[in-house]
């Protein structure tokens, strides 16, 4: 299946979304990512039982932090799909891309440029 999804999305593979920590997501933003979405298996379908629930909680924590520091919590999102749902992945990617384009670039980038 060859599906089109926005080309500026960089995919990082992890064995389970439960591996993704608050710190990983924050570091991505610190390095200038405009948005981060964590895509996990469907709720209830995690091979490691609760990895995707943990990931969701962590994304929520990141959203809170981003709101507090003025970067915008909406830039971090959690999505769920099953491994056979390629088209849904493409749809999420497009959705995320649109959301982030509306929000504009990560303010970090501008601030870094100014500071330099």
């Amino acid at each position: 299946m060859r599906l089109q999804y926005p080309s500026d999305i960089k995919i990082i593979f992890v064995p389970c979304t439960g591996k993704v920590d608050v710190l990983h997501i924050l570091r991505a933003f610190e390095k200038g990512a405009d948005g981060v979405c964590v895509v996990g298996c469907l709720e209830g379908d995690c091979h490691f039982i609760s990895g995707n629930f943990r990931a969701r909680k962590r994304v929520e924590q990141v959203q809170k932090i981003l709101d507090t520091i003025g970067i915008g919590g909406e830039r971090a999102q959690m999505y769920n799909l099953s491994s056979g749902e390629g088209p849904r992945f493409a749809q999420f990617a497009i959705e995320m891309d649109e959301r982030i384009r509306k929000l504009g670039p990560n303010p970090m980038k501008l601030a870094k440029k100014k500071a330099a």
Binding site: L26, T68, G70, A115
Partner: peptide, 21 residues
């Protein structure tokens, strides 16, 4: 160590965004 990392990262972004070095 992890909480230190999270706090430091958040603070770095906050101050940079505020234009404070």
């Amino acid at each position: 160590k992890k909480e230190v990392g999270v706090m430091a990262s958040a603070l770095r972004m906050y101050f940079l965004n505020q234009g404070q070095e």
